[in-house]
Design a protein around this nucleic acid. Sequence first.
DNA 1: CTTTTATGTCAGCCATGTTGACGTGATCGG
DNA 2: CCGATCACGTCAACATGGCTGACATAAAAG
Lengths: 173, 173
Amino acid sequence: MADIKAGVNQLFLREEELRTGMELLFYAYREFTAEPDEILAKLGFGRAHHRVIYFVGRHPRITVSDLLAILRITKQSLSRVLGELVRQGYINQTTGVRDRRQRLLELTDKGVDLERELSETQRQRIARAYRMAGAEAVEGFRKVMLGMLDEEDRTRFATPAAAARLAAVKRSG
Amino acid sequence: MADIKAGVNQLFLREEELRTGMELLFYAYREFTAEPDEILAKLGFGRAHHRVIYFVGRHPRITVSDLLAILRITKQSLSRVLGELVRQGYINQTTGVRDRRQRLLELTDKGVDLERELSETQRQRIARAYRMAGAEAVEGFRKVMLGMLDEEDRTRFATPAAAARLAAVKRSG
DNA sequence: CTTTTATGTCAGCCATGTTGACGTGATCGG
DNA sequence: CCGATCACGTCAACATGGCTGACATAAAAG
């Protein structure tokens, strides 16, 4: 009897704990995107533009295919926002050297400026959270977040060196 | 000279660390929503329906205003999805007793079933991440995630007791 | 030389957010 | 008790950003 009650109670606590985790993710993500969204709106851009600018900034000379794999959207969806960013001078396209079918993407100076402005508030938010929580908590945060990813994506974060090697192999324009 | 180099390097490490955090959030959220989205699509629903079902399930007899405050969308946007869910028998509306202007929302049995099905994969994903990371890491995860929220939202998670009291006061239909 | 690949483009659809205007019934404050 | 405010609903129009399907071109690969 005591055993059963303990079991049920533990199950309840467990579910409550998991739902708290789900909600933390929801609220954190919502607030994480709110501030850049305001800046973007003034430029006539949306969150999709931000994602493109961010990942092109993060992976200079990335190919369109690789960017699509990160974003997990269709090329038609990407082309709309990417096209605007190129036409308005935030992103450059250069033909790949090794493979001339590729269009390698990179931020212009204007693009770099915008990227920094957009991610500034986000970096500050994370920096604040890291400071408040402490180094040990940050390590725990990373472990849990990594555990949430599928195996495939986890490799992206395995070791910076490994990720860099991977990226270099795939690029090599 | 050595001091300057160290400073610059530390700045670089710090920014790299923050960007890794940003990306973890992006990838985790993306994968977190992917599986429920598939189930929803089969029913002709979208992620917006999921959010409504989730939070109504989480806060039985919640008012429309309170739900709007959680979701941070307009009532017109909410009414579209909420209306569908009510018409299709996933959610019940009952007139508030203390304040007859209110429409208190709660899941029907059908709604509870769908909610469980939708959140099942998400709970599994979090449970797996928690197991892999360990109890101490989970505590760190929670600390960091809380630090990402604005003060206002943080209170929602302060202590379960406080949150329950708050909710009870606001409801009391 | 044929096939596959990387990319682009046109057209149309859908989900979900927005603003603005307006209506109804319930509550509240003076 | 009456006017203001509040909770909620609804109609209309629009924007963003996903999607599918079809088709085109140039380069690489076999």
